[in-house]
Simulated scan of single mutants.
Amino acid sequence: MTTTVNQTQAHRVDGEPGVGASLEAVRRRLGHWLRIDASRLLWPSRCLVCEAPGLEGLDLCGACCDALPWNRCACPHCALPLATPGVCGACLRRGAVRARRGRAPLLDGVHAAFVYAAPLDRLLPRFKFHRDLAAGALLSQLVADAARQWPRPHALVPVPLHRARLRRRGYDQALELARPLAQALELPLRGDLLWRTRATAAQSELGAGARRRNLRGAFAVRCPDALPAHVALVDDVMTTGTTVLAAAEALRRAGVQRVDAWVCARVP
């Protein structure tokens, strides 16, 4: 039986905590992001989307915060947004095929904090392609708020870039997303566990079949003797799920018993 990260009901970031909530409980709730230091007092937060004054402890204004496309009703196997709770048709078909072949699913669960829509479709490209690490910190903060309700893994594993692309880009967006997320949720970060064995073409430029061929055998596990039993892969955006499935396959073959995927946004 899995346990959730935190069942405490969320507080509004722009309002007062519930009656009787202690200052220590608030600090545990939002972690290091709500530590108001001198820089926050001298330079109040600004919304990273529209540049209006931000909410306390959040680089997002009230209007943009209200517009966030939370992915609250989604397929548990692929995080596809759904109108009603349940499993999507594609996952039902894939599950039936795998069951006939006697194969267990590679991913036990997929969780996406948001649907890829405004204003996420402005923040994520700035973070991923334009070195906007402030946008990445904001996204981590928001994902952490959602992830408190997801099954708690033993460790977070960012989906790695190949070293050639890392040199070109200068940073690994999945690692930058996962590092503050692990800190906020008090989970081990295992950025050393998974590596990309070869350079691959950008997935955004390929169709579904080409994506699968592109990533076949593209991941490997570095230290198979020190594996957590349950890990959550962390990535920024999920479209077809090919990347996280390829990473999950490498982890499964190495002996990880349960693999979930945590992504910031799911493309509908």
Rank of each mutant, 00 (worst) to 15 (best):
M1G: 08
T2D: 13
T2Y: 04
T4E: 07
N6P: 02
N6D: 14
Q9A: 07
V13E: 05
V13Y: 02
P17N: 03
E24R: 05
R28S: 03
L30W: 15
L30A: 05
W33M: 06
A38Y: 09
R40M: 09
R40W: 14
L41K: 08
L41Y: 13
P44N: 07
V49R: 04
C50I: 10
E51W: 10
P53N: 15
L60I: 12
C61M: 08
G62K: 11
G62R: 13
A63C: 07
A63F: 14
C64W: 13
C65T: 05
W70F: 13
N71F: 12
C75Q: 08
C78Y: 08
P81R: 06
L82A: 03
P85S: 09
G86H: 06
G86N: 07
G89L: 10
A90T: 07
G95L: 11
R98L: 09
R100P: 01
L106C: 03
L107T: 03
L107D: 02
G109I: 12
G109C: 13
V110I: 07
H111C: 02
H111Y: 15
A113I: 00
F114C: 01
Y116A: 00
Y116V: 01
A118E: 05
D121A: 03
R122S: 11
L123R: 01
K128H: 08
K128P: 11
H130L: 04
A134H: 14
A134I: 01
L138V: 13
L142S: 01
V143C: 13
V143P: 00
D145S: 07
D145F: 01
A146N: 05
A146K: 05
W150F: 15
W150L: 03
A155Q: 11
A164D: 15
R165V: 00
R167E: 13
L175C: 04
A178M: 09
P180L: 08
L181C: 10
A182Q: 01
L185P: 10
E186F: 12
L187R: 11
R190D: 11
G191Y: 05
D192C: 15
D192Y: 06
L193G: 01
L194M: 10
W195M: 04
R198P: 06
A199Y: 12
S204M: 08
L206K: 15
G207V: 02
A208N: 08
G209C: 03
N214E: 06
R216H: 15
G217A: 14
F219G: 00
P224M: 05
D225W: 12
D225P: 00
A229Y: 14
A229K: 15
A229S: 11
D235K: 00
T240A: 01
G241V: 01
T242A: 12
L245G: 00
E249K: 12
A250Y: 11
R252W: 13
G255L: 15
R258M: 14
A261N: 10
A261W: 13
A261L: 04
V263D: 03
